[in-house]
């Protein structure tokens, strides 16, 4: 559910490093799924960057992964290529 714009507007989507951070903490997808109360498919979809979570879920994930939300999620796309993430 990435947000894209047409008519010449740049493509904007939300990128994340949930997978990397989860692995750093030694958590399995099942553990993360149970911690934030979503289904396994949602975690998989989120880690693949196919699903953009709500602000509430993003905050829950940041809390669970012990990281600032801005370090976990950021705007992706051509205009954000120079991001330091």
């Amino acid at each position: 559910m990435n947000f894209t714009a047409d008519r010449g507007m740049p493509i904007i989507f939300v990128d994340n490093n949930v997978s990397e951070r989860r692995k750093q903490l030694g958590l399995t997808q099942a553990q993360l799924e149970a911690a934030v109360g979503v289904t396994r498919r949602t975690i998989i979809s989120l880690e693949k960057g196919k699903y953009t979570p709500s602000l509430l879920l993003a905050l829950q994930l940041a809390q669970e992964l012990k990281v600032d939300i801005n370090d976990l999620f950021w705007l992706g796309g051509p205009e954000n290529e120079k991001s330091d993430h």
Binding site: M1, G37, V38, T39, R41, T42, S45, Y51, P53, S54, L56, L57
Partner: peptide, 19 residues
Amino acid sequence: PSFNSSQGELSAGDEREKA
């Protein structure tokens, strides 16, 4: 547990399924 018989096919396990 994500299936709610009163909601039937509209039962959602999380926000993604609701969407």
